[in-house]
Amino acid sequence: MIFTGALETPQLWLRTLDESAATGPYLAWMQDAEILRFLEARFGRHTPESLADFIHSMNQNPDALLLGMFFKGDDGRAGRHVGNIKLGPVNREHARGDIGLLIGDKSVWGRGLATEAIAALTRYAFEQLRLNRLYAGCYGGNDGSVRAFVKAGWAVEARLPRYWRLDDSWADHIILGCLNPAA
Results as ranks from 00 to 15, higher is better:
Ala6Arg: 14
Gly141Val: 12
Arg162Gln: 11
Glu93Val: 05
Met69Tyr: 01
Glu127Arg: 05
Phe126Ala: 13
Leu14His: 13
Gln128Ala: 09
Leu66Gly: 03
His46Ser: 13
Arg15His: 12
Ala171Ser: 10
Glu116Asn: 07
Asp143Ser: 10
Tyr124Met: 09
Leu14Asp: 14
Asp172Arg: 04
Ile55Cys: 03
Val146Pro: 09
Met58Thr: 01
Ser107Pro: 11
Asn84Val: 15
Gly24Glu: 10
Gln11Met: 05
Ala21Arg: 10
His94Thr: 10
Leu166Val: 15
Asp105Phe: 12
Ala158Asp: 07
Gly79Lys: 09
Leu131Ile: 02
Leu131Gln: 07
Ser50Glu: 03
Trp164Lys: 11
Arg147Thr: 15
Ala171Cys: 11
Ser20Phe: 02
Trp109Ala: 09
Ala183Arg: 07
Asn142Leu: 08
Ser107Glu: 15
Phe70Asp: 04
Leu65Pro: 06
Tyr139Gly: 03
Thr16Val: 15
Gly141Ala: 06
Asp98Tyr: 12
Asp172Trp: 06
Pro10Ala: 12
Gly79Thr: 14
Phe126Thr: 13
Trp170Ser: 06
Pro62Glu: 11
Asn91Met: 00
Ile118Cys: 02
Gly83Trp: 08
Ile175Met: 13
Ile35Thr: 14
Leu113Ile: 11
Ala41Gln: 12
Ile85Ala: 05
Val150Pro: 07
Ala114Pro: 07
Ala64Asn: 14
Gly24Met: 10
Arg165Pro: 08
Arg165Cys: 06
Leu134Ile: 08
Phe149Glu: 11
Val150Asn: 05
Ala155Pro: 00
Glu93Phe: 03
Asp18Val: 02
Asp172Phe: 03
Thr4Tyr: 11
Pro48Tyr: 00
Gln11Trp: 01
Phe43Met: 05
Ala114Phe: 08
Leu27Ala: 06
Arg15Met: 14
Ala171Asp: 00
Glu116His: 05
Gly76Val: 07
Ala120Lys: 05
Asp18His: 11
Leu87His: 10
Tyr135Leu: 09
Arg37Cys: 10
Leu160Trp: 08
Tyr135Asn: 06
Ala52Val: 09
Pro10Trp: 07
Tyr135Arg: 01
Pro10Met: 06
Ile99Asp: 07
Gly79Asn: 15
Met30Pro: 06
Gly137Leu: 01
Pro181Leu: 11
Asp105Cys: 12
Thr122Ala: 15
Lys86Arg: 11
Arg77Tyr: 06
Ala152Trp: 10
Gln31Gly: 14
Met30Lys: 04
Gln31Pro: 03
Arg45Glu: 08
Gly24Ile: 02
Pro48Asp: 06
Pro161Gly: 04
Ala22Asp: 03
Gly100His: 02
Ile103Ala: 02
Asp167Thr: 00
Thr16Lys: 15
Met30Asp: 02
Glu93Pro: 08
